[in-house]
Write a protein that binds this DNA or RNA. Structure first.
Lengths: 294, 294
DNA sequence: AATCATACATGAGGATAATTCATTAATTTC
DNA sequence: GAAATTAATGAATTATCCTCATGTATGATT
């Protein structure tokens, strides 16, 4: 019944004083406005304006409509410009899910770059999921899943972010310290510290120990990486971390890193996303930043 | 750009789940909605929703628009129903201007009836004007002017409300008490109490004393009618009031009323209004109530 | 797998509504 | 009283929206 065009006319008429000027402001003919207000008054069975000499004056009802116009039109304008910003990919919320500690640790570095590069896009990180990270992605709990595991799905695409190597960290006191590499067998007598995640989701098991059918002497699950590192320092066990994270600790604490097997265990971190999201500017940008480009 | 129809579609889609049902709810074909959406997405260069199997899911941008819809649509609905009430003459504000004390006193009685008769119309009374009451009416500071003076103007109409007689009030001790009438000459030795208004606007002068070229011995202006009455009671002067108001005091205080001249001074109270307002239901009703009808 | 049902997308054509143009009417200004 | 300004009106045009018929994709059923 009442349309935005009517509100625009009322508002323009109020600001410009005369129908003719209001018509100019709206890039329409005076006739068009005259027809429109006539139509509206007829529909509402209500005088909105009173002819006053050769001008128009709002009635009570017209004033009420003017007030509505002054509330609604700015809201619509604001929405319009916000959506324009969306279209340009400048504004939005990039919701990222991370599944593993290394992913999270790595993310914190990339996010800073991203926030700098895209000042109008906010970031939200989810690291605890109702179900799995994959399901979170499929349910649109977040837009991008950072994960080392590709589970193929025709609606999803994965972009490789970067490669890293998993290495063992042991105390400098430990007899592993200084070795070129260790074999799975050498872990059979060790205490292995990991995050509290099932062994099937830990690469040290799936990529290294399980293939050799070997289990560590003991498997202790630790929540915090800092406590885990303290335990490594005091020789209460060994742990496995991405090389770049291990390097970080090696320079600060008396711990050494050792390659897992002759060739080492190599991983790749991927950004998983819905295929229709892959072309959204800020998501593309995030992936490129994650790949070390830009 | 973004029209109410788009907001209605987004809102209906959110409430009904599928395009087809939303189309039913809006009494449109599914095709119409599909076209509208397509048009909007093309204009905004932005996906508002994503096909998900055989359903639709709102994107971030779509969600933003949904929020706007949920704010704006209720406002429009409310405005629409308020205007409908206006059209039925049920709702509004009747702004009344009064120029003289008797008018104001009389109004208070009528207003109670009006508020009872028209529960959805509010009343606002203005009794102090920037300029004259007439100008206030012409400037639309109020809708109806209650006045005893008709000043003709082609844009205004006047409806007679009721007739009254101006009478003199004097203390029961006063020698006027009990007289049939007084002549202008008899006031030449009296103290006349009036409201603080120029003599030209007081009927006792214009209708009674000026024609006889007589002035009272003294003219004292008093703000409050209660104090004025006290002064009359203690014989410090006489005053002139409408008969119905005088009767009111005669029954409570030791004062008497006396006719002014042989035939008395008769007045009529009028409701002045813009001619195009005269047909507004609640204004008509006010006039009829003022005339003692209904 | 093949079939059926459901839901959205699309193109063409027709109905509807909005806009303009040309003109008239009313009012103010000089 | 003439000129200028402003709104109203009617007819013709234009743009827009809607429906119908049909196509395409997906999911359920057998």
């Amino acid at each position: 019944m009442i349309e935005l065009s009517h509100l625009r006319i009322i508002s323009a008429l109020h600001e410009n004083g005369t129908l003719t000027e209001a018509a100019n402001a709206l890039c329409l003919s005076q006739s068009a406005l005259s027809h429109q207000i006539r139509y509206l008054e007829k529909k509402l069975e209500l005088k909105l304006w009173q002819r006053e000499g050769r001008g128009l004056r709002l009635t009570q009802a017209g004033n009420l409509l003017l007030q509505v116009a002054q509330q609604v039109l700015p809201m619509m304008d604001h929405a319009g410009s916000t959506l324009k910003a969306y279209a340009a990919g400048r504004q939005g919320i990039l919701r990222i899910g991370v599944e593993c500690y290394p992913c999270y640790e790595w993310l914190t570095g990339v996010i800073a770059d991203f926030l700098l590069a895209m000042p109008e896009v906010d970031i939200d990180i989810a690291h605890q999921f109702q179900f799995s990270g994959l399901e979170g992605l499929l349910n649109h709990q977040f837009d991008v899943l950072v994960t080392p595991d590709i589970i193929s799905n025709k609606t999803l695409v994965y972009a490789p972010l970067f490669d890293y190597e998993l290495v063992l960290l042991a105390s400098k006191e430990h007899l592993f310290a200084g070795l070129e590499m260790i074999t799975p067998e050498m872990l059979a007598t060790e205490v292995l510290l990991t995050f509290p995640v099932p062994a099937e989701r830990l690469d040290i098991f799936t990529q290294f120990l399980f293939p050799a059918s070997i289990a560590p002497a003991q498997h202790k699950q630790i929540q915090s990486i800092d406590i885990m590192m303290q335990m490594v320092v005091y020789n209460r066990g060994v742990c496995v971390l991405p090389d770049w994270l291990a390097d970080n600790y090696c320079s600060k604490l008396p711990v050494s890193k050792v390659r897992l097997g002759r060739k080492g265990v190599h991983k790749t971190l991927f950004a998983g996303m819905h295929c229709y999201d892959a072309e959204i500017p800020y998501i593309k940008r995030f992936v490129r930043l994650g790949q070390g480009l830009d």
